[in-house]
Design a protein around this nucleic acid. Structure first.
Lengths: 183, 183
DNA sequence: GTCTATACCGGGATAGAC
DNA sequence: GTCTATCCCGGTATAGAC
């Protein structure tokens, strides 16, 4: 009824929070609509489908993750710190308003059928960013074994995220694992 | 029509395979019924609900994982090998008839709401087994830092499983990460 | 573009006979 | 305990007015 300003933005914000906290599959469209204060038809006019909304949400989230991570890298004092800055960035992201349950990209990949194009695109882009920047930052620390180290750190980062689903998991343990790997 | 022998077993087998490959949430009950060659009412007579079936499936799967892992530990030549045997066991499990997409327990935890009792019980039991045995096996290798090392290996194991959802993930990289951690 | 109201469908679960 | 047939709800998506 009330002509809300930028329904699109409100939808993206509401969906981002709910998807991050509950998981996309576990979040009914109605809940997004209620939180955004928007009517169903508006959602479909903008995004075409729930999947389309999810794609837009993940796209925006990847951009924010990119920015947050880059800032954490810039703030680090030395090469080793820059390589470990991914954990600072994870902490920063976790501190954000609604703490993600684990990882929106892994959630998309886990929740969708294996060949789902939206989920595949999202997890591929996220993984590519992680791999590329970790490899780049590993250069000064590991030299010609940068790619190898980056791959191992990718396992540790993914494991840190997955540990959010298990009892007793902590970001600190993930960081400690990465630090041990650098010795 | 045909009085199938042990419908219960057939249901468990069918569900285990389908849940492992596709994820539980992504698998309709109908598909389980079709594969098992069993009627809907039979499923509900035995397990009460899809959730009940899932609980039984995860219970059986944990028991098999326990056995497989223990056998891999026994087959290892030395203390270090026994600690890394968890990756041999993962390989053995992955080689099983229908290769799991990633991990049935993490899948249950990721697919259900955060406070779902069935998923919580499953992921808790799985995590407890991993933690306990890793700690025990880390003893001869790490002495009084066994708990710390076990916790880090738990991150690496979880990360190895999560990497199944990303492009370019491999069990070998997970094992290499764990080996690097032992140096 | 946005709203109200509704159509449509997939999926979990049940009724009742055998 | 097992079968056939069916119910019923939640959830996505659309129709049509404003």
């Amino acid at each position: 009824m009330t002509p809300r300003p930028d329904a699109r933005r409100r939808l993206l914000d509401a969906a981002d929070e709910l998807f991050a906290v509950q998981g996309c599959a576990a979040t009914p469209v109605d809940q997004v609509l209620t939180r955004a204060g928007v009517a169903p038809a508006t959602l479909y006019a903008h995004f075409g489908s729930k999947t389309g909304l999810q794609a837009a949400v993940l796209d925006a989230r990847l951009a924010r993750w990119d920015t947050t991570w880059a800032a954490a890298v810039d703030a680090a004092p030395d090469d080793r710190g820059r390589l470990l800055a991914v954990f600072d960035a994870l902490a920063e992201f976790a501190r954000g308003e609604a703490a993600s349950r684990w990882c929106a990209f892994l959630d998309a990949a886990a929740g969708a059928p294996a060949d789902d194009p939206t989920a595949t695109a999202a997890i591929t882009a996220d993984t590519a960013l992680l791999r590329a920047r970790l490899t780049e930052l590993a250069g000064p620390v590991a030299g010609d074994r940068a790619a190898e180290l980056a791959e191992q750190l990718l396992v540790v980062v993914s494991g840190t995220l997955a540990m959010h689903l298990r009892p007793g998991g902590s970001l600190a343990t993930g960081r400690a694992t990465a630090e041990a790997l650098l010795r």
